[in-house]
């Protein structure tokens, strides 16, 4: 069942149209969140060109995420990272059948508007790109297309939901090949949910209201999460996933699916690795199957990775106070 909790009664993103004679409703909460639900138990792969997109599709990716540069290269290049070239997005769109997502900068309403009419399926308002607005995120209820947003704790996740996001991913620390931050974020979210669930069960509404004030989110979202005992949106793991075992680990922590960024196409065996990560994600509950998947990759070919304690740029901190 999809949680239909909403901030606006009649969001501007909803379009009432006619399919010849039949009235239809586009961009409804159900249609937007439903799209995210179709990706569950799957792997979304970062790609920068048609060749990579085809490798991802053939490997069994559930969608591709189009970027100008992979997070690892964004980190190396420095400067301002913006949304990908529209021509590249269109080129990929015309060569594959699985859904296409693309990233826009945090708060950059117009990059998002352009992406919305470019024929992609979902927009990622992402901290991997340089934020365009330090104060606020996009008001996503105004869009017909669904959004995915990053979060590293429950407050961020629910604030993004209140702004109209349809899907959450952990932030992790993108482009590092190091899964530690993603693990930290999913554990943190799980613990926070466990806490509010037990408070809700005890009937202590006053304490829940206090928590919603601390999280800077409306009470209704905290209550819904406490009632469900999980995030009311689909929640994927992202940031630093590099091996089949990484993917299986995060699925076992309760994630609904996996985003792989630099981990595949910055490795020296992307074709095998892409397939292996998909298999490990589906069969994450069976160590023997994950072992078979892990056997398909060569550790000498993995992205080298880096220590997340000594980074010049912590992408996960972008937008965390908004």
């Amino acid at each position: 069942m999809i949680s239909l909790i909403s901030t606006e009664i009649q969001p501007r993103g909803i379009k009432l149209e006619k399919l010849e004679t039949v009235p239809v409703r586009k961009g409804t909460t159900l249609v937007k969140r439903g799209f995210a639900h179709m990706h569950k138990h799957g792997v979304v792969m970062d790609v920068t060109n048609v060749e990579q997109a085809q490798i991802a599709e053939d490997a069994g990716a559930v969608a591709v995420m189009v970027l100008d540069k992979l997070p690892f290269d964004v980190r190396k290049a420095g400067g301002v990272a913006r949304t990908a070239s529209i021509k590249v997005i269109e080129d990929i769109r015309d060569h594959i059948t699985i859904p296409i997502m693309a990233k826009c900068r945090i708060g950059h309403i117009y990059e998002a508007k352009i992406l919305e009419v470019s024929g992609i399926d979902m927009i990622d308002e992402s901290e991997v790109l340089t934020p365009a607005d330090e104060e606020r995120f996009i008001w996503k209820w105004d869009f017909t297309l669904p959004f995915v947003n990053g979060a590293r704790n429950l407050g961020e996740a629910l604030r993004r939901m209140e702004e109209g996001s349809s899907m959450i991913r952990t932030k992790g620390e993108p482009g590092t090949g190091n899964v530690a931050e993603a693990v930290k974020h999913i554990r943190l979210v799980n613990n926070e949910i466990r806490k509010i669930k037990s408070i809700h069960e005890s009937g202590d509404i006053q304490e829940l209201i206090k928590i919603s004030r601390e999280l800077k989110v409306s009470y209704a979202y905290v209550e819904e999460t406490a009632k469900l005992g999980r995030l009311p949106l689909v929640n994927f793991a992202a940031g630093g996933i590099s091996t089949p075992a990484d993917a299986a680990f995060l699925m076992n922590l309760g994630c609904d699916g996996i985003f792989v960024g630099s981990g595949i196409f910055k490795a020296d065996d992307p074709v095998e690795r892409a397939k292996a990560v998909v298999i490990a994600t589906t069969y994450h509950d069976e160590p023997k199957q994950v072992m078979e998947a892990q056997k398909m990759v060569d550790e000498k070919k993995s992205i080298l990775g880096m220590d997340t304690n000594n980074l010049d740029l912590k992408m996960q901190e972008r937008g965390s106070n908004a």
Partner: peptide, 15 residues
């Protein structure tokens, strides 16, 4: 026919 109504922008609910 797959994706016969179009991409996500054309996804909808109807009675």
């Amino acid at each position: 026919e797959r994706n016969a109504f179009g991409r996500q922008n054309d996804s909808f609910e109807a009675e």
